[in-house]
Design a protein around this nucleic acid. Sequence first.
DNA 1: CACATGATGTAGACCGATCTACAAGAGGCG
DNA 2: CGCCTCTTGTAGATCGGTCTACATCATGTG
Lengths: 347, 347
Amino acid sequence: MAARGQAGPATIEDVARAAGVSRSAVSKVIRDAYGVSPAMRERVTAAIERLGYRPRVSARGMRGKTFTLGIEIPDLANPFYPLLLAGATAALSGTPYQLVIAPADPAHSEGYRALQALVDRQVDGVIAVSPLVEQAWLSEVSATVPLVMLGRHDRAEEYDTVVSDDEAGALTVMRHLFDLGHRDIAHLTGEPEDSDPGFGVPQAIRLQAYRTAMQEAGLGDRINIAHVPGVTAGAHRAALRLLAETERPTAIVACHDEPALEVLRAVADAGLTADDVSVAGYDGIAIAGHPGISLTTMRQDGERMGRRSVELLLERLAGRTAPRHEVVEPDLVVRSSTRPPRALGGR
Amino acid sequence: MAARGQAGPATIEDVARAAGVSRSAVSKVIRDAYGVSPAMRERVTAAIERLGYRPRVSARGMRGKTFTLGIEIPDLANPFYPLLLAGATAALSGTPYQLVIAPADPAHSEGYRALQALVDRQVDGVIAVSPLVEQAWLSEVSATVPLVMLGRHDRAEEYDTVVSDDEAGALTVMRHLFDLGHRDIAHLTGEPEDSDPGFGVPQAIRLQAYRTAMQEAGLGDRINIAHVPGVTAGAHRAALRLLAETERPTAIVACHDEPALEVLRAVADAGLTADDVSVAGYDGIAIAGHPGISLTTMRQDGERMGRRSVELLLERLAGRTAPRHEVVEPDLVVRSSTRPPRALGGR
DNA sequence: CACATGATGTAGACCGATCTACAAGAGGCG
DNA sequence: CGCCTCTTGTAGATCGGTCTACATCATGTG
């Protein structure tokens, strides 16, 4: 922003005129292309400075690139997603690329809409976080623009993926609870249709791991799954229901930290404590470490996941064609929300 | 997305050819402009459908609009901001506009960079949340594109603003604490240079209100202000220092909920409880209502603020030229983090 | 019946960049 | 000295839309 010729912001034409050179020359300087003499660069740069010229991304996008990467995110209210963004933003600093976020409500069709909006805007690369769009559709998108699917376990040929090892993570949580002595462990997750493991959604993988762990521990008959519509929104009520059962579970595992917070709230509302019911979450959001919450959780390195996603995109833009599928290992953070069950010597 | 002619996604040219009409005709149909017969609309729509045609925003932006509104947000990790986004997104549903978010680290120059990135992308309107950019610069920006400053109290002639009544809110918190019997009340806020009331930043207004309230209560000599670099990041240490003072304050008011959470953590770390030190925040983030936290706070209707910002932009796009400055009233939510001071019979 | 009016569709300029092809000039070399 | 190569800068096509001006045709009207 600075003084400009007449109507509206300066264009490349204005700069060319001011510097006494051609448009092409200015363009070369901007793009740092081959064939510019130091003298010319000097004059053009000065003119750019003087006019406060900024190239318009729309115009650049017509032929070249937009220097924009888009990330589609469902539900920014979930504090795990900002972690991804922090990592993505960090990975982009120092590059000429700008990150733009398209928010999408978690509702089904919203993911499509938001991703489509990014594609319409000619972004140079897309990161998709919405788990509920069809793989085939993503493949089609990736024919137009490089794409990274973040968080879902599908090893597509057409695009890259970055995921956390949800199976190992969920099994680790279960082992932790078994080690504490729990046998009546309930699992709280989303609606059944989203939990089909074929879809590759994290919560589906975690649910499957829960089943496997219970079976292998010989507790197949104690499997207790609460499918909650809207997960976080319905978690409080669902948890109250679990807590009112005659054979109350001694531990509840939620598919994410956010619903786990609601479970904790329900535990408090029911007049119970962590000595009565252990609660474990999954994600490792920051508030889980607050002394008033102190939630045991599997911490996913969201920042790393966001960073790697961007790096994979940049590699694609640099020419890579073979798909890559990255796995990030989560780690268990034990806090005071999980304790031995009362009957076995819990204080 | 669907079948397309040859290389790359279909263009308006392809649609025109497929429908046997001119580009202009297709353009008219897309824009729902005057002069299209039902028959023509029919044929064109069918062709669009068949080819899976989507107009490219870059190309549209060259002459017309981009149907994109941009919002610049510092620090998405602060859960108050997603509230704004939720409101903004909601206000946009049903309109042809798409919201894109440009993330900016809270560092000073980042706000400029992110806002500039949005302007470069030819958005039809901008919402700025970063409080630390100069008013004059914003005025310049608003010569190019309609702008709403969200959260800062400057009644500029060139652009609209949406703010919460921070003065009334902060005074309300103080009255609440006075009513409980507190007299030694400390205030925790950001760095002094950001607290100049002339800047209009919320935390500056709140700090000023704290001063006023203390003065008017005859407690001018007990004013105790902790200026913390990086607010949230430094709040924990700063709170520990306050708690270690010989004349320990009986209440601590933070300029935002996020640092207030850190104060609560410090209180716990120091082996104290809400009976020893009351804590109040400001913003009304959701987690403050969790039983493990239970933080007294001034709730700002972030969703409403986001919604109003978008509505003001839409009005501008519809032709309004006179600036509007909206004020939203916050309300006090009393929870168990504030109690009467021990000396006066707090149990 | 000649003419004004209004509805519908098309041609082509235009937006602001990029990028290819090429011209002009400077050195290098046999 | 003539030719070749390399560097530097320019002209002009191009991207995919929008938008203005205008042509065409059907209809209403005096």
